[in-house]
Nucleic acid binder design. Structure first.
Lengths: 173, 173
DNA sequence: TGCTACGTTCAATACGAATTGAACGCATTA
DNA sequence: TAATGCGTTCAATTCGTATTGAACGTAGCA
């Protein structure tokens, strides 16, 4: 039991392994784990649905990892569960709507990280409104900060539009 | 010596700290450290150039961190070094061409991570060319893999165009 | 009803990357 | 020329987070 899957061709199996490895790096650099990419790539290059058990053996990952990765990928619409009658295991096959998948995944990953900064500009602008009437801070300081924040807002708004229109909609197609 | 900088206004100082914190999160999630963002935000909201020494005190980071961050930011065109005569310290002030800065930073960060996967498609397609003539692998397997890889290439080319045109050029303006 | 084989969960662990800080080199000044 | 005050470097450390694996719940089967 040395190599399994995808016929016996050495070079084809080699190619799959290359993709598994590369996908692992990609997802890792995107801030999802390495395993997620590996699982998807492996399933993508599998002719038949594979079980969690297969994944743990081939990718040498734990049962827990396999389970969690598969669930994450399912939520991103990257996998489909397949029942094989007379078999108690769950089987999975990869879907290939890369655009939709990437879109969901990015929104998820980015959203997960941007909570903190989100709404900061609005909050701060609110604070400045209040202070605008008071005279506590020196007029100079107030103007300085307002000017700086205005620059940020302008840039934010511009990139926001680009992001919304270009990326997401185009990835959808 | 409790609070320094930016006048004495509590609320304005508060605002700066908010931005420092937020910027730290952003750069961290982008895969550059937390410190990079903090340093930039602090300088951006400083009226006068600041020294490494200032940074270590205000941001509570080590001299090493301050030095490395400043250098990185300089390479991204985010900072400008300022000499103050009669002072042996180096001073820095933030530049605000956000577009150019982000562009350089992203190219750098992404480039740093994509080395692995880069050229993979080309390599693999090369391998498949060779195998195309041999009959080692079953015809079915060969076709399967070729089809799968073609899908990936199509997607890669499409997103590549979007990335090149939309993002980078627009960020330049 | 108990037994088996599976998937899930989450506290413990391992791992990689960010950060530190001591050692160093290089200016500047006396 | 020595002494002082910088910035830089990089091995050691710390810290966050991905991964593990043992314990658990559950569904099917005898």
């Amino acid at each position: 039991m040395k190599t399994k899957t995808l016929g016996d061709s050495h070079s084809l199996e080699q190619i799959r392994q290359r993709f598994v490895e590369a996908a692992g790096h990609v997802t890792q650099s995107l801030g999802a784990g390495r395993v997620i990419g590996q699982v998807y790539a492996y399933l993508y290059f599998s002719r038949k649905p594979q079980s969690l058990d297969d994944l743990t053996k081939v990718l040498e990952i734990s049962k827990g990892s396999a389970s969690m990765s598969v669930r994450q990928l399912e939520q991103w619409g990257a996998l489909r569960q397949v029942w094989i009658k007379g078999d108690r295991k769950d089987y999975y096959e990869a879907l290939d709507s890369f655009g939709k998948i990437l879109r969901k995944a990015l929104l998820d990953l980015i959203g997960r990280r941007m909570e903190v900064g989100d709404g900061l500009l609005e909050q701060v602008e609110g604070l400045l409104e209040e202070k605008g009437t008071s005279t506590q801070p020196t007029q100079e300081d107030l103007e300085f900060v307002q000017k700086k924040i205005a620059l940020i807002r302008a840039f934010r708004d511009r990139t926001q539009r680009i992001w919304d229109s270009s990326i997401l909609t185009l990835l959808l197609k």
